[in-house]
Design a protein around this nucleic acid. Structure first.
Lengths: 335, 335
DNA sequence: TCCTTTGTTTGAATCGATTCATTGATACGG
DNA sequence: CCGTATCAATGAATCGATTCAAACAAAGGA
């Protein structure tokens, strides 16, 4: 049994297909009697408009592609949710692609979305794929960069100033009188990690007598943080940092767990600890974690708005919106 | 500048549209010389196949709709990721809809997905919407229930036996010699909450002298858990439960934070604590949390497989796959 | 040389909704 | 009673890829 088409409805109601279409799209153009007759037929036949056909005619779909690095990461899931909400307001849907930091999967999704003629692609790129994105844009699919260096002038972008976030976090530690600062870095190929380190370096450089040590974690996970913590507690007391800034909250929570479990060190008395992202769990850690909050929802929403701008007037000059992160002080720096 | 169509390619290469289509879909049917000429034209024109037109002809899309209750919840984000992976293997994409426990948004997504003629809908329903889903299925869109009571015979479903999970958790507490059991419930309209309570009740009923108390939390969040914990620590010592089972990990972590912060109670000596879901943070809590692990990835993957079964043979009898959850013992019950 | 077989290529018809120029019907003013 | 304006309804053309019967070409056999 085939699904009912607009033609079936037209036959059943004894009108032309154009009239059915008008009932669906411009009800006021149709006489009330005809309209209700058509609506009755629609209901009895269980007709559901085929959006694929509609899209073909319209030349574009009603969906927006969103490609994130890791949907399991609260930063992105929150961002995705906000983007989805914002898109829903304008009757659009968000198709989610999870690249998982894998360039192949990323390209796969770009191809897929281009074939599906999405209205635009919101992407948090794994690496530099400006070429592919430029080609995409030239063929008419709008591109908005999310959480990515704003430098690439060709596209609109939304990002958070990670340098300023790193600066903020470190300045806070220094303001508490801490001088032996350590930055727990994740893999350096993440620009977020590099930027946050840059901010830290700058802040440390502004205070005489302050030193900076970089501890390299293998990953941005709780487990990797625990490994760093395990290494720290084995050190001589005097060689320990007294202010620790971690590239993200997961690392910070891992470090915290390790440090508090072994009871050698107290937070914040011995080591003050700052994370990054302010995930839900930051507040519910052993010692509530001071962190840098990124306006994730705002990012997602703004990305959709930037896309809407482009759609409305394709000639618009691309805009870059940069949000400032915010310091959230909790017990881990505030004994 | 319009995007190049198959017709443009045909003109450019000096062949018929059918030939271009064959190059794309059945390259072996086309003579090598013609084929390479067409491929060259495709490349110079930057042609990208319009999947919308292809779908119209095919009668269905290459996407699967997934409607989850809350994408911010690690259970669902992990499930979504797995479903996406599984779908990608068969060249399909997953469109994600986040109902946020809101019936209106849920229906909105069902409508949207039906209009988009997705191959099937994987849904974790907010409430009982069997009627709407039945109508959907009758018109040819397959439906797979995810993490939902398997009872509704008309659809295939994947779920986890929450009753058995509740039983498992409580049996574990009882096995440790705990007799004053309390269940921290979330809102009772979640069938997961009800089922887990049923399992707990059953386990407690099997042990003479064991009592069960139900503490009602307003929500399934860390904050709500903290409120329950705050209320507990104010009690007389002898009226306190010695075994606490929470409807999910977030609640458990909240309770834990409250209890350990006020230092009145030790975990597990005074109160043994069990959560549910085994989210990433369960292992990295103040006291590593004993929890019930659900095979989230397997659920997502299985849902896609069940859909594939339906697609292959629409006459297949619906199947219900029920996974058994697993107890993960950590420090919170194992001092 | 003619017929058959095999292998390629062609292009009109199709999917379902939208668009829009055209037709038809009705009302109104003079 | 006619001409014109207004409002409804019509249905062929369109979007772009796929399908498939038919045309065509080249090679081989009789």
């Amino acid at each position: 049994m085939r699904a009912a088409s607009i033609k079936d409805v037209a036959n059943h109601a004894g009108v032309a297909v154009g009239t059915v279409s008008n009932v669906l799209n411009y009800p006021e153009r149709v006489a009330p009697r005809t309209r209700s007759r058509v609506l009755a037929s629609i209901s009895t036949l269980g007709f559901v408009r085929n959006d694929v056909a509609r899209q073909l005619r319209a030349g574009h779909s009603r969906t927006i592609g969103l490609i994130v690095l890791d949907i399991g990461n609260p930063f992105f899931s929150s961002l995705a949710r906000a983007a989805e909400d914002a898109a829903a307001d304008s009757g659009n849907a968000v198709v989610l692609g999870n690249s998982g930091h894998d360039s192949h999967r990323e390209l796969h999704y770009i191809d897929l979305f281009e074939e599906q003629r999405v209205q635009g692609v919101l992407i948090s790129p794994v690496a530099d794929i400006t070429q592919r994105l430029t080609a995409l844009a030239e063929r008419g699919t709008h591109v908005i960069l999310v959480d990515s260096p704003a430098g690439e002038g060709a596209f609109s972008s939304v990002s958070v100033d990670d340098v300023s976030g790193g600066y903020l976090a470190t300045k806070h530690l220094l303001g508490l009188g801490r001088r032996r600062i350590a930055f727990v870095a994740g893999p350096q190929h993440f620009h977020q990690v590099r930027d946050r380190l840059t901010g830290t370096t700058r802040a440390v450089g502004e205070v005489v007598g302050a030193t900076l040590e970089v501890l390299q974690a293998d990953d941005l996970t709780v487990l990797a943080g625990r490994a760093i913590g395990d290494a720290l507690v084995r050190r001589e007391r005097e060689s320990l940092p007294d202010g620790l800034f971690c590239a993200n909250d997961l690392l910070a929570l891992g470090v915290m767990q390790s440090i508090t479990m072994l009871h050698n060190l107290r937070i914040p008395e011995d080591v003050a600890l700052v994370g990054y992202d302010d995930i839900d769990f930051a507040a519910s850690a052993v010692v509530a974690l001071t962190s840098i909050r990124q306006p994730t929802a705002l990012i997602g929403q703004t990305a959709v708005e930037l896309l809407a701008e482009q759609l409305e007037d394709p000639q618009t000059t691309p805009r870059s919106v940069v949000f400032k992160p915010e310091l959230v002080v909790r017990a881990s720096t505030n004994g």
